[in-house]
Design a binder for these strands. Structure first.
Length: 632
DNA sequence: TGTTAATAAATTTTT
DNA sequence: TTTATTAACA
């Protein structure tokens, strides 16, 4: 089953290893097999396996369960953040709350208005996250960003809030400041395995180093050529640094690719060879040579989209499944034209947008009400829910509550109790506020005895979310999301080992994980979102200078992104670019991407748009269907 | 309170 | 150009 390199990676007796695993070389299998191998001789709770996504963690878990049944109880398997959360829950004696990036953003906005600072909240957030990712605390300074960082941190501390960066940083500090605790974990864990190591940032690597520096028991899997999150603080160089820090390590290269055709693979190899400072590997495959890669030049973005649509309908006629095709692009903005064209051509598709499930308005609102029931003192949830659905408590009232809470140094909830008692409010506001607070009190009572999903259903009913979201056209979709949320809640199984109620655990879960929103039809997504996926046919759109590579950012990383894109394709790769494209309203002449010159000419067919076809859209699609030979 | 008009911004985003 | 956020208005 496993090839010799994979076998070596699975069974090596060396506790430290760097598994350099290219795209489609079976790295997940190696991780699963390695874990299974270790679990035969070692107790599960002496092994830690870290991933970046919940998806990866659950895939490993389910594959491991299939193989071993229940021998993995006690295994420390999860994302960096969920493992840190677990550690902090065990060792910090305070009951803190995890906040998502959007909650963090609202908090920063509030602090900025409070302190009357005219700064871009987004930049502040990036500043704070970047600092935390490098283990740096706020300091006294004349610099405004530092001051906001400080103010933000004071607020978080007072309200026991932890953002994602804080989870890592606190864990790191916990280890640094408590040598005996650190020693305990250094002793406890015999094996630490990390997936997608090329994506680790400064603090994640330092965390791992602290944990494994005594035994040198760090086993990492990764691919420097697929490092595409540098802009978020990921440090590819951690892979090189690892090699000098863990000198006894094995270096095992997984270069046997099981996914791509020879043609696609050699294009990928050819392209990535243009990067310097690589650890170095060349993928090979026993797969067939396969079809040549098409590079199509369209006159503009619309024709580019139409070409893609025509290829798709042609492939569909030939019996290829739409869900086995993907259209990848550099930026989400490129999706609109393509989506519109596919719609007109009546080709089913699904656009994977950036927005995460638990970040949707409707889900946030529902969870805010749940949060308020568990803890009415939660100011963030209070503000969010206060006037949605509208109950006559607008910005003025909200500000009054915030000010009152601030001056009396109490929560918004308590401030409201005081305001109502003092009866300084207009009768309508008084009524609305009383109603709101009574609603929360009643809900708290009612849902306490209910299972999670019924509790959420009750909140939806009592708050009147169905009516609220039905006002607008897109309301139906929102209601579906709420329904999905109830389903997720129904399936949610709390960890009995944690001293938290089920709803509390669910709220943390909502912060630290995501829900897969699958759709049928052709998959449209950014290149970043495609990492880890594979499709029989892949379209790479917009291969133009300034679009891809973007021109900003680092060229090597852009090239790695291209490498990721190419290696998503199993059998067919179609690359498109347009001579002319609308960018911010004005039409610009576009030069082809330099990546197009970095592909091996013998595996490429270059096509140019045929002279204009002057038909309207439906006839044009018909025309494409009747005229095969567009796919080379 | 919810509508419109003006203004500004505009990659990629696993947690 | 499109989209989002904000300010003024009805």
């Amino acid at each position: 089953m496993l090839n010799p390199q994979q076998q070596l990676a699975v069974t090596t007796a060396n506790k430290s290893a760097l598994i350099l695993s290219g795209a489609g070389t079976g790295k997940t299998s190696v991780l699963v097999e390695r874990l299974a191998h270790l679990l035969v001789e070692h107790p599960a709770d002496s092994i830690m396996a870290v991933t970046f996504t919940n998806k990866a963690a659950s895939e490993i878990k389910s594959r491991l369960e299939l193989r071993l049944h229940d021998a993995l109880a006690g295994l420390w398997l999860g994302t960096f953040h969920s493992l840190c959360y677990r550690l902090l829950l065990m060792h910090l004696k305070v009951k803190f709350k995890v906040i998502t990036q959007s909650q963090q953003m609202s908090l920063i906005k509030r602090i900025l208005t409070q302190d009357e600072r005219d700064l871009d909240a987004k930049k502040v957030l990036n500043f704070i996250s970047a600092k935390k990712d490098r283990g740096i605390r706020a300091i006294e300074s004349d610099e405004v960003y530092e001051q906001v960082y400080m103010a933000y941190q004071i607020h978080c501390k007072a309200h026991l809030l932890m953002d994602f960066g804080e989870l890592m940083l606190r864990c790191y500090e916990l280890f640094r400041e408590h040598p005996r605790l650190l020693a305990h974990y250094q002793h406890k864990f015999s094996y630490v395995l990390v997936d997608e190591f090329q994506d680790t940032n400064w603090i994640q690597y330092e965390f791992l180093r602290l944990l494994t520096q005594e035994k040198g028991n760090l086993f990492i899997v990764g691919d420097d050529d697929q490092s595409i999150y540098g802009f978020r603080g990921a440090i590819v160089e951690n892979m090189m640094t690892f090699q000098s820090h863990y000198q006894q390590h094995d270096l095992i290269k997984l270069e046997q690719n099981y996914r791509c055709s020879q043609t696609i693979l050699s294009a990928a190899n050819h392209l990535i060879a243009h990067n310097q400072e690589r650890l170095g590997k060349v993928l090979r495959t026993d797969n067939a040579l396969g079809e040549k890669i098409t590079i199509y030049q369209a006159s503009d973005a619309l024709h580019e989209a139409e070409y893609i649509a025509s290829c798709i309908s042609q492939l569909q006629v030939q019996g290829h499944s739409l869900s086995d095709m993907a259209i990848l692009y550099r930026a989400n903005s490129q999706a609109d034209v393509i989506a519109q064209t596919l719609r007109e051509a009546q080709i089913p598709f699904h656009v994977a947008r950036g927005q995460r499930f638990f970040d949707r308005q409707e889900i946030k609102l529902l969870l805010c009400y749940l949060q308020l029931c568990l803890d009415p003192q939660d100011n963030g949830a209070f503000e969010y829910a206060l006037n949605t659905p509208t109950r006559g408590l607008g910005v003025v009232t909200k500000q009054k509550i915030i000010d009152a809470g601030l001056s009396a140094n109490v929560s918004h909830w308590e401030a409201c109790e005081q305001l109502l008692a003092n009866s300084t409010l207009s009768s309508s506001v008084h009524r609305g506020l009383t109603q709101f607070m009574q609603l929360i009190r009643t809900l708290t009572q009612v849902i306490s005895a209910l299972p999670l999903d019924q509790a959420l259903q009750t909140i939806m009913d009592q708050v009147g979310l169905v009516a609220w979201f039905s006002r607008h056209e897109e309301g139906q979709e929102r209601l579906e999301h709420l329904h999905d949320c109830l389903e997720v809640a129904a399936k949610f199984t709390p960890d009995a080992a944690l001293e938290l109620s089920t709803p509390e655990q669910f709220l943390v879960h909502a912060c630290l994980s995501s829900v897969e929103e699958s759709g049928s039809g052709v998959q449209l997504m950014t290149l970043h979102a495609s990492k880890g996926l594979e499709f029989e046919t892949v379209f790479l759109a917009g291969l133009e200078k300034g679009v891809f590579p973007s021109g900003l950012g680092n060229l090597q990383e852009e090239r790695r992104l291209m490498y990721v894109g190419i290696t998503r394709a199993k059998k067919r790769l179609i690359i498109t670019h347009a001579k002319q494209r609308q960018i911010y309203g004005t039409s610009k002449y576009q030069k082809p991407s330099l990546f197009l010159d970095e592909l091996p000419e013998q595996f490429v067919v270059r096509l140019k748009e045929k002279p204009a076809v002057t038909l309207r859209m439906p006839e044009r699609m018909q025309h494409y269907r009747q005229q095969p030979a567009v796919v080379a």
